[in-house]
Amino acid sequence: MSSIITLGEIMARFSTDKGTPLSQANQLLVHYGGSEANVAVSLANFGHDVSFASFLPENPLGLGAKRYIESFGVSTRMVTFRGERLGTYYLETGAGVRKPNVVYDRAHSSFSTAKELPWSFDELFEGRDLFHITGITTALSQNWLSLVVTLLEEAKKRNVTTSFDINYRTKLWSQEECGNALKKILPYIDILSAGILDAKYLMGIELQEYTLENVYAEILKGYPNIEVIYSTNRTVYTSEHNSLVGNIYRKGRLTTSKLFDIPNIIDRVGGGDAFTAGVLHKYVTAQDEDDIELINFATAASVLKHTISGDMSLFSFREVEEFVKHTSNEISR
């Protein structure tokens, strides 16, 4: 299997019970999560040698977050203790026609206030096959934007494959800020998670017809270094019932997964990260495999994440493969 490193912020998530508005809650369920950490855990569950780099406070919450991802086999050798606070966010769980809502409380966290990297670039990237990071980390500060660009430059100098999920969050930065950052980041990216709205509103791509195939071809005109672009199309019927399709574009060809129906959703948060991990797993282990196999696997990984609580997907490679082959509710005997 491959050696992979991700870098980002892990936070504590406080969630309401379904049917309880956040303003009325008198108890909350706690999970640990964060986009790059979620991807790291999924890839470790798929059998890869995965390291996670981050900053945490040396207090019970920070130690709890560190021990949690360690329990899934993720190396935390490059988790550094600094600062005094773990970032948090609050999730008002959706119900029926009422969609979920997130409230961030991550300002002045140990991660967001970091000014420099305590690790050498050789420590981070020596022997690595892949480096994954997201726009969430990039959005935290101008300093983090500069650090991310530098990290990507150094990874490419060492021939490490780079993966970037735009993961745009309106509560973290504006479209203009994100668009300007992408101009600095995308020249260093090999694998990109982006959809039509990202291309239209963040990259400023103008087309007569906004189809995925047209959009992805246009992105590659500006950034021919990108080898793979991927995304999902989600249809929301209610908060508990969605359907999902995955897409991947490489070598000038768009491939779309089969349609997965997801009734009775337990927890949608982290579904995109599970999808990303599925794409990356197949990319590094089966590059010659038909893209339909890749995208069906990645979409299935995301669908399974919807069936468990918390930010992180806890399914193994074999469990996802089995789900793709035998999508039913029959008991596995």
Rank of each mutant, 00 (worst) to 15 (best):
I266L: 09
S313E: 04
A298C: 04
S110I: 00
N167M: 09
I219H: 04
S231A: 15
T137I: 10
Y188I: 09
G252N: 12
D49C: 12
E322H: 15
I69F: 05
V148T: 15
S316P: 02
I262F: 04
H326I: 13
I248W: 01
Y216I: 07
N167P: 09
L202A: 03
I331E: 13
L43A: 05
Y188M: 12
L197E: 14
H326P: 07
L117P: 01
I191K: 10
E84W: 03
G19W: 10
I189V: 15
A44S: 15
T20A: 06
P57D: 10
V279H: 00
T232I: 09
N296D: 15
L63A: 00
N159D: 14
F323W: 06
D291Q: 11
D291I: 05
S35P: 06
V79P: 04
Y168M: 04
Q142F: 06
I4A: 05
V97F: 12
G204E: 09
E84D: 14
G8Y: 02
E92P: 07
F52E: 02
N59E: 09
I266Q: 08
T138A: 14
D122I: 03
N101M: 14
T235P: 05
E177H: 12
N159P: 08
D198H: 02
E176L: 13
K251Q: 14
A217Y: 11
S141F: 06
I4L: 11
P100N: 12
Y223F: 13
A298Q: 03
N180L: 15
L254P: 06
D290E: 12
H326G: 08
L172R: 00
L192D: 05
G62E: 13
S15A: 15
F111P: 01
A107H: 11
K156C: 10
F164S: 05
T255I: 14
G135H: 03
A12Q: 06
Y68R: 05
H132E: 02
T170D: 11
I308E: 13
F317N: 00
L220I: 08
I191P: 08
N101T: 13
A298L: 01
T276Q: 07
N233I: 15
N167T: 10
T88F: 12
N38V: 07
N159H: 14
I226P: 01
I189D: 00
I136F: 01
D267R: 08
V245M: 11
D165A: 04
K325A: 14
E218N: 12
L151F: 13
L145G: 05
A194I: 08
E92A: 11
K66I: 06
D129N: 12
L197A: 12
N143P: 00
T232M: 10
T113C: 10
I205M: 01
E330N: 12
D273F: 04
A286W: 11
T327L: 15
V279N: 03
P60Q: 07
S2V: 08
G246N: 02
K258P: 03
S51Y: 09
G246K: 01
T113W: 11
L294S: 08
L220P: 01
G73H: 04
Y32G: 02
N329F: 15
S163W: 06
A274Y: 09
L207C: 06
A277S: 11
K200A: 09
L61M: 15
T161M: 08
S51V: 05
F275A: 05
K325L: 15
V236Q: 10
R158D: 10
D17G: 10
E176Y: 09
K171G: 07
K183V: 11
R85F: 04
F52G: 00
A40N: 05
M203H: 02
L28Y: 06
